[in-house]
């Protein structure tokens, strides 16, 4: 165990480097995924057949063809067709488009789930379609979509563990190095806990967003109240 700890100490720069790649891919990938989700989620609701059809084809393509295939598509195929890109770019594109396509369905579904009365009241007040979407529908759909987006975000974080396939040195690859320096259970136990903590931090952040979004709709407590210290008893009575 002592040997393990000193080996871990020695391996810390590598683990940090790997984690840097994992976090970079997660942040950039989810940023792209969010943009893709909103753009294609809105396009998938368009009344113009061509726009809607295009969105559907893109969404179904990226949902239907496996993340790993897409990763290789950007890493091996596009360069052969003349589009050179770094492995990081290939990874960000694959994660952004794949999870963005799933996210587009979440966005589309959440918008459709805003009660009909809200659309009708906006029409009765003569609000323009753009104004209605921006000020009335999206703020309500946002609260609905956060839990699903959180799931996708965690999936994306976990999905980045395959980027060793395209030569990137991420946390998972670093763990393999650590395994050789220490032992299997120590290295992977440590690594799984790291991933768990990362996922947990993301979930806490998304939960905070959800509390805030719901509070703005007049549901539940404010973020400040939710984060304030209370005895377990008090919390129990809130729930």
């Amino acid at each position: 165990m002592n040997d393990d700890l000193s080996a871990l100490w020695a391996a810390i720069p590598q683990v940090l480097e790997g984690m840097g790649i994992t976090v970079t891919l997660t942040v950039l990938g989810s940023a792209l995924a969010f943009v893709v989700a909103v753009v294609f989620g809105l396009m998938a609701r368009s009344r113009t057949l061509v726009v809607r059809g295009f969105a559907r084809v893109v969404i179904e393509f990226f949902r239907g063809t496996s993340l790993v295939v897409q990763l290789y598509l950007f890493f091996f195929v596009l360069p052969q067709l003349g589009w050179e890109m770094s492995p990081i770019t290939a990874g960000v594109l694959a994660f952004g488009l794949n999870y963005g396509a799933y996210g587009a369905e979440v966005v589309r579904g959440s918008i459709a789930a805003v009660p009909a009365g809200q659309w009708e009241a906006s029409t009765a007040l003569s609000l323009s379609p753009v104004h209605r979407m921006r000020r009335i529908i999206i703020p309500q759909a946002w609260a609905l979509m956060i839990p699903s987006l959180n799931n996708l975000l965690i999936q994306l974080l976990k999905g980045t563990a395959i980027v060793g396939f395209i030569t990137l040195f991420d946390l998972t690859v670093a763990l393999d190095k650590l395994r050789i320096a220490t032992d299997l259970f120590f290295a992977y136990g440590f690594g799984l806990v790291l991933y768990f903590v990362l996922a947990y931090i993301l979930t806490l952040g998304m939960n905070a967003l959800e509390v805030r979004a719901k509070h703005r709709l007049g549901q539940g407590e404010s973020l400040r109240e939710a984060l304030s210290f209370r005895t377990p008893d008090a919390r129990g009575s809130v729930a």
Partner: peptide, 18 residues
């Protein structure tokens, strides 16, 4: 929750060696 929130790829490699 621990299994759900950690990557299946890491679990695969771990189990493969274990």
């Amino acid at each position: 929750n621990f299994i759900r929130m950690t990557p299946i790829v890491v679990q695969l490699v771990f189990a493969y060696f274990a």
